[in-house]
Amino acid sequence: MRNISDIIEGYLKAIIEKEDSGTIEIKRSEVAEKFSCVPSQINYVINTRFTVERGYAVESKRGGGGYIRIYRVQTNSSKELIEHIIGGIQQGASNTMAEDIVLRLLEEDAITEREARIIMAAVDRTTLQYPLPERDVMRARILQAILMTLIYTEMK
């Protein structure tokens, strides 16, 4: 059974997909009212489900006329997508970031489901039994190596 966060995420993604620009502008209170939830639930969904790693950019304006604008980040090729991801994990990558990155690569057809499972096994916290923050740095290095390999094999 899906929870309210999954339902809100699905609703927002459906609206984004319908827009040619890949951009939506919402009022947090209106979406909260639609789903009979508190506005902080909308914040939670946006902060956890519409991240850079998942291919979104978010900007907001607070106040009475405030809004939340969500952009779908478009890339021209798998190579450009992978280069963008590599640039975003220079300082380290949490397990959640790695999951989001792999999910995005899957959604963009840059990797197969089998490759996604292999990547996640390689960077999982149970595999990388280092203390933090070393574990996140090691995870990022492994992801960068894998992603560079994907770029190289795509160019062949």
Rank of each mutant, 00 (worst) to 15 (best):
M97H: 05
E134Y: 15
V31D: 02
D109I: 01
K13A: 03
I82D: 00
D100I: 00
S29Q: 12
R72A: 09
V58S: 11
L128H: 08
A116K: 05
E19R: 05
E113T: 08
E25K: 14
M97Q: 11
R72I: 04
K13Y: 02
K27W: 03
L147R: 02
T23A: 06
L105D: 04
R72V: 04
L143F: 12
I86K: 01
L106H: 06
N43W: 07
K79G: 04
T153V: 11
L105C: 09
A140L: 13
V58M: 08
M1L: 06
Y56V: 04
E99A: 06
M155W: 12
K34S: 13
T126H: 14
H84S: 09
I118F: 10
R62W: 09
K34Q: 12
I68H: 01
R104G: 01
R139I: 07
V45Q: 05
N43P: 09
P131F: 14
L81I: 01
S78Q: 07
Q41A: 14
E59A: 15
G64K: 09
R2S: 07
I68R: 00
M138W: 08
D100K: 05
N76C: 04
L103W: 05
L81W: 00
D136H: 07
E83V: 03
V137F: 07
T48V: 10
I89C: 05
M120L: 15
